[in-house]
């Protein structure tokens, strides 16, 4: 067996010459309907807004200026930092961060528990965890809102049990949005951690226990560092979509919990919209996400080189 030689499935199955035609549809679809649109969006963020939505082809930095600087009502005052939008971004990062930590706190024990079941049972547990993800996100969010309402089943049962006197104000709070995000993306946390724990060599834990480490010290000193790639992957998978989420903040939050998704959405609605500003906010969001993804890819490449 020529083990060290490059495997040349291409040569032997005869698809090498067909690579171009086979990939053409993908290139065309994603290239024309995603890459070009994103490039166009970048251009639009430097155009002048038209009042009934749309743009005028005059290049300007107005959209970014509006995002970062306050020049007074008539635009003639000396610029100061505009905190409104930065605060919305900050709140989005905060909400997504809290949701990520919530997912981690629940997702890690769940993933661990599933990965330590007998092999035959794992599939069923994983299936149970993933099924809700495939249920329409809108429906899940609406369901959560229904459950959390002031006169909804949760408050109702708490009151009839006499645990609380009046309804807890759950909807339209930061907590509701965090719960909504947590609920939306929890499986994204469980799956990569599960994959990492499944590959974990439990002899390491036994060795630690043999060397007098307690269960929890072993968890902190041995398990967490070893399965860290899975944890990091899970956090990214929850944090990134949470950052730009629209449904959870829109349906479960109120005016005080306004997030990036809603800010962008507003710019494209009817005559109130501002397309260049919406494009600029989208660009800033995408840049933020790309930075996170690139940092992650770098860290992963570094970890791979080390091992």
């Amino acid at each position: 067996m020529a083990g060290f030689l490059p495997k040349s499935g291409a040569e032997s199955t005869g698809y090498r010459g067909l690579v171009g035609p086979l990939l053409l549809p993908t290139w065309v679809m994603v290239g024309v309907f995603l890459v070009i649109p994103v490039a166009l969006m970048a251009i639009y963020s430097f155009l002048t807004k038209e009042f009934r939505g749309g743009v005028i082809w005059d290049f300007t930095l107005a959209a970014y200026d509006q995002f970062f600087f306050n020049r007074g009502l008539f635009g003639d005052e000396p610029p100061s930092i505009e905190w409104t939008y930065i605060a919305i971004f900050w709140r989005s990062v905060w909400q997504a961060g809290v949701a990520t930590l919530l997912c981690l706190a629940v997702g890690f024990p769940t993933a661990w528990f599933i990965a330590t079941r007998p092999a035959a049972q794992r599939g069923v547990w994983l299936f149970l965890v993933t099924v809700p993800y495939w249920v329409n996100l809108l429906i899940r969010t609406v369901s959560l809102k229904f459950l959390l309402r002031d006169n909804g089943p949760l408050n109702g049962s708490l009151m009839s049990l006499g645990l609380i006197d009046g309804p807890l104000p759950l909807v339209n709070t930061d907590l509701a949005v965090q719960l909504g995000l947590f609920y939306s993306y929890l499986p994204f946390m469980v799956l990569p951690i599960y994959a990492a724990v499944e590959r974990y060599n439990f002899a390491l834990s036994e060795a630690a226990a043999d060397l007098y480490a307690s269960r929890w010290v072993t968890l902190r000193e041995i398990v967490l560092p070893v399965v860290r790639p899975g944890i990091v992957a899970g956090c990214i998978l929850v944090f990134v979509p949470s950052l730009g989420a629209f449904l959870a903040p829109d349906l479960l939050g109120g005016a005080k919990t306004f997030m990036i998704g809603s800010l962008i959405d507003e710019q494209f609605k009817g005559s109130q919209g501002n397309w260049p500003f919406g494009a600029a906010v989208s660009m800033i969001l995408m840049t933020l996400v790309m930075i996170v993804l690139i940092l992650y890819a770098r860290a992963q490449a570094k970890a791979e080189r080390r091992s």
Binding site: P37, V38, G261, I264
Partner: peptide, 13 residues
């Protein structure tokens, strides 16, 4: 690409 960004870009396109 975040979904909302895809949405914006596609609409603009």
């Amino acid at each position: 690409v975040p979904e909302i960004v895809t949405a914006v870009a596609t609409l603009i396109f």
